[in-house]
């Protein structure tokens, strides 16, 4: 727990390596190419923002990187595991032990309290006394007083804090965030992104975030742009041009 993995650790292999990723979906009349030949490497402890307009394919890319779906072509390797060749259950095990998620629409279970929502991944991992760790995290995100409130009794910002606590509960090595401030006002969005960045730093987690918010993207160490399914890295392009 709390292993401080930063750039100075010995393991220098990339956390995420994507090679020639292409994703198509079949529509009624023809197929739609959502991602085309995406290649990418993300190092341990890096924070990366993927920026693009609605419909550019960024959420699909995030899902494929996290192993929530499998690509039509290409490979994704996460912390050394070739996720495109894993079975659904193996991918689930990988997610349970190494991956955390934060969603735009929070994705909290309405029937469960804040505490129970955070306990969920811990229970799936078979942890004993999950409520201790869950309480600790909720206190950390400033919701120590609202443990037994259900999502409906919480504001949007509070719900996203619960979701962040849940994302960090199982000590992931990589966190995927899909427009984490997309449903929040500026001020609250700012608070939530502060929290996310802080926790990320504390835990030494690799962060991959999808957003259309340039300000939020600027807080990440690296920005990638996606348009019509094609990924570009402005700084890299600039370097190459130089």
């Amino acid at each position: 727990m709390n292993q401080m993995t930063d750039l100075s650790t010995t393991d220098t292999s990339p956390m995420l390596r994507v090679t020639n990723l292409t994703h198509r979906v079949g529509l009624e009349i023809d197929t739609l190419t959502i991602l085309q030949g995406v290649s990418l490497e993300i190092n341990r402890g890096e924070s990366v923002a993927i920026v693009g307009r609605s419909g550019s394919g960024k959420t699909t890319l995030l899902g494929l990187l996290a192993g929530l779906d499998t690509p039509t072509e290409g490979t994704v390797s996460l912390d050394g595991a070739q996720i495109s060749s894993l079975s659904e259950d193996e991918r689930a095990r990988l997610r349970a032990s190494r991956v955390g998620f934060v969603f735009q629409s929070f994705q909290l279970l309405p029937a469960l309290s804040a505490l129970e929502n955070v306990m969920l991944p811990l229970e799936l991992a078979g942890m004993e006394a999950p409520e201790v760790r869950a309480k600790e995290l909720l206190e950390r995100v400033g919701l120590g007083e609202r443990l037994n409130h259900t999502p409906r009794q919480l504001s949007g910002g509070e719900q996203q804090r619960v979701a962040i606590a849940r994302a960090f509960a199982s000590d992931p090595v990589i966190l995927f965030a899909d427009e984490p401030t997309g449903n929040l006002d500026n001020r609250t969005g700012q608070d939530v992104s502060d929290l996310l960045m802080e926790l990320n730093r504390e835990q030494g987690t690799t962060l991959v975030m999808v957003t259309h918010d340039e300000h939020l993207a600027a807080r990440c160490g690296r920005q990638l742009h996606i348009e019509a399914g094609i990924l570009t890295e402005p700084e890299l392009a600039r370097e190459r041009a130089n």
Binding site: L68, E88, D89, A92, R93, L94, R95, A96, S97, V99, F101, Q107, L109, A111, L120, P121, L124, A125, R166, S170
Partner: peptide, 13 residues
């Protein structure tokens, strides 16, 4: 919804 989320969080089928 719960099932979907559990799977996302790493619950095996």
């Amino acid at each position: 919804r719960e099932g979907a989320l559990l799977r996302t969080l790493g619950g095996q089928q």
